[in-house]
Simulated scan of single mutants.
Amino acid sequence: MRRTHLLTILLPGMLLIGTPIFSETLTLTPQAITEWKPVYAEVEPRDRVPARARIGGTITTLDVTEGDVVEAGQRVALIEDTKLLFQIEGIDAQLDALNSQLEKAQDDLTRGESLSERGVISTSSLQALQTNVTVLEGQITSLKAERQVVSRQIEEGEVLAPEAGVVLDVPVSKGGVIMAGEEVATIGSGGTFLRLGVSERYADTLTEGDTIQISGAGEAREGRLAKIYPLIESGRVEADVEVEGLDARFVGRRVQVRLPVGSHDAFLVPQTALTQSGGLDFVQIEQDTGTSERVVVPGNEVMRDGVTYVEILSGLAAGDKVVTRHE
């Protein structure tokens, strides 16, 4: 019985020998820790460009829908105004009549020139025939210019995409009546970025070029604070964050980001240096007389060089030598 009891005491010691633990000391010095502010940002296109109608009329053709990718100058819709077609027909009829009058006036002028050479008609009569031809030619030129204007208006019935991008919204439908200047489609162009808004009290802490932490889809990424807008509205500052490879399938999607809004000095110790007992946290301090345990109050965890550190809020001072352990 005594032999069995001895084996029970020795076995734990044998297990500890199989997993040796090494220790070293860390001299504490204050280190700067970045303070992060969690906010939500929305995926936004760099530019929202409206494709507007240049004339009023009826939408006879609608070539795009939400989500379509368009090129600059591509037709988005076709608008027709029947009044313009009637104007073209009226101008063509006037041109036919004036061309007939001009043909007759030119014949009269040719005959008058022949009679004037024989002295049958006076010079003033010949000049009147020439004036009539000139007036008719001027009227025809004016009508042709008017016809070009109307033809151009008909061509402007084609609503074109001002820039290449993705169609975000089409607020009209085929067969609808639209006025000149109304929006036919909204196109997002120039790529996408994250737009966020924070309280104005953080305005002075934001700097263009700062690294922004982005969390989403189970992974942490980084972005760059590209632009800070100078206009403060409703007590909020807007800023844009550029993120490489940002998923732009859903404009307006909310993404959680963390902004650097300041920094403070703190003492950091490796997480392995902390031990818990009786609901309290302890660290070992190396002193001239040996090691002793000290109660500390831990704070947030900080990752540095792949190692997890814990911020110590109280219980330690600069110059303390903390005993750290690792296997």
Rank of each mutant, 00 (worst) to 15 (best):
L313T: 10
Q271K: 09
V69M: 13
A93D: 00
Q94R: 13
A318H: 01
P171R: 01
W36P: 01
V310P: 00
L225E: 05
E42K: 07
A203R: 14
S292F: 07
T291P: 01
V166N: 05
A105D: 00
S23P: 00
L268H: 05
A51L: 07
E42T: 02
I140C: 02
T291D: 00
V170Q: 06
D204H: 10
V149Y: 05
E35R: 14
R152E: 15
G245T: 09
V69R: 15
S173I: 07
L160M: 14
V296D: 00
L98A: 10
Q94G: 09
I91F: 14
N132K: 15
A32V: 13
A248R: 13
A32T: 15
L15M: 14
G197R: 07
L194D: 01
S114P: 05
E183Q: 13
H264W: 09
L129S: 10
Q276G: 07
V170S: 09
H264G: 05
D107P: 00
T8K: 07
G57Y: 05
T134C: 02
T291Q: 11
D107C: 03
L11E: 03
E327K: 07
D210V: 00
G235C: 03
V43L: 01
R236Y: 07
D210L: 08
R201Y: 05
V237E: 03
I21F: 09
T141R: 11
E44P: 04
G306L: 06
T272N: 11
R75W: 08
V69S: 15
M303F: 11
R253I: 03
D107I: 14
L274V: 08
E146G: 06
L246C: 03
L136V: 01
I88C: 02
E24R: 10
L160D: 06
A41E: 01
T60I: 15
Q87R: 11
E242K: 10
A164F: 10
L206Y: 05
V150G: 02
Q127F: 04
K83D: 13
E242D: 12
A180G: 08
T8Q: 13
A217Y: 09
A161W: 12
A32M: 12
A41K: 06
S151Y: 04
A161Y: 12
G319W: 02
L246G: 04
